Simulated assay, not measured.
Amino acid sequence: MSWRPTYRSSKFRNVYGKVANREHCFDGIPITKNVHDNHFCAVNSKFLGVVTESAGGGSFIVIPLSQAGRLDSHYPKVCGHQGNVLDIKWNPFFENIIASCSEDTSVSDPQPLFYINILIWNLETGEPVKMIDCHTDVILSMSFNTDGSLLATSCKDKKLRVLEPRSGRVLQVTFLSPSN
């Protein structure tokens, strides 16, 4: 019996990409270098948001997807943070709402109605609903599931927690270990 490696053949082996025409591309966008491990852009079915380089605080730009091509160097920027913008996300339910977070520990939308620290908020009223206080150190990352019923957080104490955001109850705690 001879040894032969078995490889699964890909059904995409004869598929080739095609470069988009220049009129369908976005050009001249000053993309930031300060987002570290976060995304520098966010897109939905209407808009493209890109974190940009700026002096004296953080900013990002919002471009309608129908406006492809070269971007004017004086294109308006969304400003409002004292520190660099770290991440931006579109509201999954209302396509015209975008939120940004910054090194100045604030989260806001382009016309800030309120600033958010680590609290669970009612976004319609701008009122805090619940303070999550089960962490022993700085929260590094957090993410809701698609319907908002669960919240996962990672903390500097090397623990991953799954919570019910409305009650603040911790459902599960897992110790994070480095990949080897």
Rank of each mutant, 00 (worst) to 15 (best):
F26T: 05
C101R: 09
S149Q: 07
M1N: 11
G168H: 05
E103M: 14
P92E: 02
G148I: 02
V162F: 11
I116E: 13
P178K: 09
R4W: 13
E23R: 14
R13A: 09
S73L: 10
S2H: 09
K158S: 11
Y115E: 11
S106K: 10
F60M: 03
V62E: 10
F26D: 03
A68Y: 03
P30F: 00
P5K: 14
L48Q: 04
T136I: 04
K156Q: 13
D72P: 04
F175C: 01
E23D: 15
L163F: 05
P110D: 05
P178D: 10
S102I: 09
N38D: 14
E127Q: 13
P128Y: 10
L48Y: 06
R169G: 00
G168S: 02
K33R: 08
R161W: 01
K11L: 05
N91H: 07
N180I: 10
H135A: 05
N34E: 13
Y115D: 06
S108D: 11
L176R: 01
C25N: 12
D104M: 07
M142Y: 03
L151A: 03
H24W: 14
F40A: 11
S59E: 14
M142D: 01
D37T: 14
S45Y: 02
G83W: 11
P178H: 08
D147E: 06
R8C: 02
A152G: 01
F60K: 00
V162D: 04
N14H: 15
G69V: 09
C41V: 03
L65M: 05
L176G: 00
W90R: 03
L86N: 12
L163T: 03
R8W: 06
F94R: 09
T153L: 05
F94S: 08
I97V: 13
N84S: 12
S108A: 15
S149H: 08
M1H: 06
I29H: 10
T125C: 02
L119N: 12
S66D: 10
T6R: 15
S66A: 13
I139P: 11
P110E: 02
L71D: 08
N180G: 06
E124A: 13
D104I: 06
P165I: 09
H24I: 02
I120Q: 05
S2D: 08
W90E: 03
L140S: 07
A152V: 15
K89F: 01
H81Y: 00
T174Q: 07
R161Y: 06
L123I: 15
R70F: 04
A42F: 02
L171F: 05
V43I: 15
W121L: 03
E164D: 13
N34W: 03
A152L: 11
S45F: 04
D27S: 05
F12Y: 15
V138F: 14
Q111R: 12
D157T: 11
A20W: 12
Q172K: 12
H81P: 00
A20D: 14
N34P: 00
G17S: 13
K18S: 07
L140E: 10
C41I: 03
L163G: 06
P165E: 07
W90P: 04
D147Q: 07
F114K: 08
N117G: 02
F12N: 15
